[in-house]
Simulated assay, not measured.
Amino acid sequence: MELIKEYRFEAAHRLPHVPPGHQCGRPHGHSYRVGIHVEGEVNEAAGWVIDYAEINAVVKPIIDELDHRTLEEIPGLENPTSENLARWLWQHIAPRILLLSAVTVHETATSSCVYRGA
């Protein structure tokens, strides 16, 4: 069974390693949507894989660190691409949610990235 808990946050960034004149080299913002994927067997007694409240207890404070911030000012996000943001989230969540199977970062309504750990 796979569960997905979604979060939203607003943040600004600029990408420091794009070619000169690239639009993402200028400061801009996104309304990010993040999906936290958890996979496992359903505990028949509880009726769920994991309590959504348990996911929220871990992930909400991490999302709050990102909300209304300039991402490249956060340690580990000096090059805040969607790929690097997904990996950063994984690194902060996976040690505390052992059933984590993927992190999806939606940078826009039509562009997203899925990270499944390494």
Results as ranks from 00 to 15, higher is better:
residue 12 A to D: 06
residue 18 V to K: 02
residue 51 D to M: 14
residue 60 K to P: 10
residue 17 H to M: 12
residue 78 E to Y: 04
residue 31 S to M: 03
residue 32 Y to E: 00
residue 2 E to A: 08
residue 85 L to R: 01
residue 19 P to L: 09
residue 105 V to F: 07
residue 28 H to P: 09
residue 16 P to D: 07
residue 51 D to Y: 05
residue 60 K to D: 06
residue 51 D to A: 05
residue 101 S to H: 13
residue 35 G to F: 13
residue 95 P to G: 03
residue 111 S to K: 14
residue 52 Y to T: 14
residue 51 D to V: 01
residue 4 I to R: 15
residue 77 L to I: 09
residue 80 P to V: 00
residue 94 A to G: 04
residue 112 S to E: 11
residue 113 C to R: 04
residue 57 A to Q: 11
residue 46 A to P: 07
residue 32 Y to W: 10
residue 100 L to Y: 14
residue 55 I to N: 04
residue 106 H to L: 10
residue 21 G to Q: 06
residue 34 V to Q: 09
residue 63 I to R: 11
residue 9 F to H: 03
residue 45 A to C: 05
residue 24 C to Y: 01
residue 63 I to Y: 03
residue 42 V to H: 04
residue 110 T to N: 14
residue 34 V to Y: 12
residue 102 A to I: 07
residue 24 C to A: 12
residue 27 P to F: 02
residue 107 E to W: 11
residue 45 A to R: 14
residue 116 R to F: 09
residue 96 R to H: 13
residue 105 V to Y: 00
residue 43 N to W: 01
residue 41 E to C: 08
residue 112 S to P: 00
residue 24 C to Q: 00
residue 66 L to E: 08
residue 118 A to R: 15
residue 53 A to N: 12
residue 70 T to D: 12
residue 71 L to G: 10
residue 58 V to Y: 02
residue 33 R to G: 11
residue 91 Q to E: 15
residue 85 L to P: 06
residue 21 G to N: 02
residue 69 R to F: 08
residue 117 G to A: 07
residue 65 E to Q: 14
residue 69 R to H: 10
residue 58 V to R: 00
residue 82 S to A: 14
residue 43 N to T: 05
residue 50 I to Y: 07
residue 37 H to L: 04
residue 51 D to G: 10
residue 69 R to M: 03
residue 52 Y to K: 06
residue 39 E to Y: 10
residue 84 N to Q: 14
residue 18 V to M: 05
residue 37 H to N: 09
residue 89 L to I: 00
residue 7 Y to S: 04
residue 88 W to C: 13
residue 51 D to F: 07
residue 99 L to G: 08
residue 94 A to H: 05
residue 32 Y to N: 10
residue 50 I to C: 09
residue 86 A to R: 05
residue 84 N to Y: 01
residue 39 E to M: 10
residue 16 P to A: 02
residue 94 A to P: 05
residue 76 G to Q: 15
residue 28 H to A: 02
residue 17 H to Q: 07
residue 7 Y to C: 07
residue 79 N to R: 12
residue 38 V to I: 12
residue 95 P to R: 03
residue 46 A to M: 12
residue 24 C to H: 06
residue 11 A to K: 05
residue 35 G to K: 02
residue 50 I to F: 01
residue 59 V to A: 04
residue 79 N to L: 00
residue 95 P to Y: 05
residue 86 A to L: 04
residue 78 E to S: 07
residue 64 D to N: 13
residue 32 Y to I: 02
residue 111 S to P: 03
residue 115 Y to R: 08
residue 116 R to G: 15
residue 59 V to L: 06
residue 38 V to F: 07
residue 116 R to T: 12
residue 14 R to N: 07
residue 33 R to S: 08
residue 113 C to W: 04
residue 4 I to F: 13
residue 22 H to K: 05
residue 37 H to C: 12
residue 2 E to T: 15
residue 110 T to L: 12
residue 81 T to N: 10
residue 64 D to A: 14
residue 89 L to K: 09
residue 31 S to C: 01
residue 87 R to N: 01
residue 92 H to S: 08
residue 11 A to V: 10
